[in-house]
Design a protein around this nucleic acid. Structure first.
Lengths: 341, 341
DNA sequence: TTGTAAGCGTTATCAG
DNA sequence: CTGATAACGCTTACAA
């Protein structure tokens, strides 16, 4: 009665190679502790059978699943894709598998996903941003699950973060805008509730306005979800006022692309009639015309550094130190001097 | 010596409730087979200890991980994002977790990922397209791992597919193009080797050319990877010939966006000077101006149907039947009549 | 209805 | 250097 349907096990390999399972295991994990001849026999048996170690068994004894979970707000737009891809690649290099799920920007879904991932044995977790219910942190703390926040660097936070300073980035961009003479500003922001990235970006704008002695009232803000169409709608709303802004800062490139599109549909020239800026520097920013002036975020760097840090936290059981990555402004053609008229 | 650092086990719960581990297990899995009083005791012990079943142990004995693996060519562009998101959501509804990895369009990486996912206990697999080494199918067959192909419907294939007819979709689009009087056609195709979607789309174009009595030589083809910049480069290449095409069909929207961008940078008007079409109908297609005339693919429908079918295959151990989903042409402004000049 | 005990596929500890 | 053998945490016959 040969094994017909299930994957070959260590035992099958051992039998075929005429050695014990322990030896096979050693060949695979600590080959240097096995003599050349044996190793050869074993490896060819492995090959012949197409053996792959059973993960569950390995995880059980190791008490380690070699799995990192990540919960991102959405898979549907490119904001997180590049960083996540890098994260996955780096994890793979270290022998870890990535388990992703998306929360659709809903806190209660995120919480459920966290529990699911933990139950599935995630050894560590990557979360986006810092805003969440304290009980989640307590839960992770109690279970001693290492977790890391990406996409938002905050020096004093419950979890260590590897990310960039959203506020500072937006502050700098706004300074640039103000420096070009704009005094009536609009901001199309993401929903700030429960989203520290969005909130900090908005604060960055406000700070810059204040720092430059402009009246805070000059800033008109619309909050909306990150969809192209919403960016377009928000843009119309802002521009249909009596004294519309001469520059619109957008919470990300997706919103900016929508705004830009609508501007053109309304017959407004960008940047002559109105300037528009983005954030993230995703591919989209370079495709639209005029290309967006935006904030470059080192997505891949962030992803791979987060992976490294998380693996280290898992393996050394240490709390990693936060890392702040630098952003910089990318010059497109969507930002120009304020119309002196 | 109390357990300090590791998660509570069945045994801990059993001890605390004063019952055997079997009873605890039953309380959790088949509560109706346990008398009320016992169940209460057990559940409160579970509660008090914050017990969560160890996933690896459960997977090992059940030989079922409630996990579906998916290997997609890339996470970096939006082609697969929407469908995958829907796939994940539907899976989640059925109590399954999705394990994704991306192969970067490399067959050998895909093969490795398949083995990894299987080793990790994936109960079923979602693969993209049909082109892969036969040994992979043998492997899946031998291990009796249900697998399904999406993004490409082919009626006679080794694995059942839930997807659309790439050839037919492109055939129809090409007919539309030819119907507008275009007789010099260009195609910017994805790499066809190992990618049946790309190959079938190209064949669709060829078929339509033949069906309409045009000389096959009128079609110029460039193959390149799916990146905006490559679409742009390919476009320049095609247009720098003596008698450049009057219409360029692109293998997907990403390539089309690149072509469109380059057209504009070259001072060509679209569609007056040259028509450009896309494929996929991702958001990008609607953002660029002119908006792309493209082929709409029901990504979300495909994702959720694939999830359903796969879960069924896993649970009933049946082979599902293939499903062909319909595509349709989306009218943008990037396709116009051939310039009579 | 509940308990006992035999695995599931690995790894790790000891002997040999 | 290699081979028994005991865990790991859970489910599931089989007994009681």
């Amino acid at each position: 009665m040969s094994k017909l349907k299930s994957a070959p096990t260590l035992d099958d390999v051992a039998r075929r190679a005429g050695v014990s399972t322990a030896t096979v295991s050693r060949c695979l994990n600590t080959p240097e502790r096995v003599v050349e001849a044996t190793r050869k026999k074993v490896l060819s048996a492995v090959e012949a059978l197409g053996y792959t170690p059973n993960f569950a068994a390995r995880a059980m004894v190791a008490k380690r699943a070699y799995t990192i979970g990540a919960i991102i707000p959405t898979m549907e737009n490119a904001i997180f894709a590049r960083g996540l891809q890098a994260f996955q690649e780096a994890l793979h290099l270290h022998g870890y598998t990535l388990l992703v799920s998306s929360s659709a920007y809903k806190p209660e879904i995120e919480e459920e996903q966290i529990r699911t991932l933990v139950a599935r044995g995630a050894d560590g977790l990557l979360l986006i941003g810092h805003d969440r219910a304290p009980r989640i942190y307590e839960y992770l703390e109690r279970l001693k699950i290492p977790a890391l926040v990406a996409w938002s660097f905050v020096s004093e936070s419950y979890l260590p973060s590897i990310g960039f300073d959203n506020r500072k980035a937006m502050f700098e961009l706004t300074e640039r805008v103000v420096g070009l003479g704009h005094t009536r500003l609009g901001m199309i922001s993401g929903i700030t509730h429960g989203n520290d990235r969005a909130r900090l970006r908005l604060e960055g704008v406000r700070d810059a306005i204040q720092a430059n002695g402009l009246n805070p009232e000059t800033l008109q803000v619309v909050e909306t979800t990150y969809e192209i169409e919403n960016g377009a709608e928000a843009f119309s709303g802002l521009m249909s006022q009596q004294r519309p802004p001469s520059a619109i800062l957008c919470g990300n490139d997706v919103l900016a692309a929508g705004a830009l599109r609508r501007a053109q549909d309304m017959g407004l020239r960008v940047p002559e009639d109105v300037s528009i800026t983005g954030f993230d520097d995703i591919e989209l920013a370079r495709i639209v015309r005029p290309a967006l002036t935006t904030v470059h975020v080192p997505h891949r760097e962030m992803g791979s550094k987060a992976a490294l840090a998380l693996v280290e936290m898992v393996e050394q059981k240490t709390r990693t130190s936060a890392q702040r990555l630098e952003t910089h402004i990318v010059e497109g053609q969507s930002l120009g001097p304020a119309n002196s008229g």
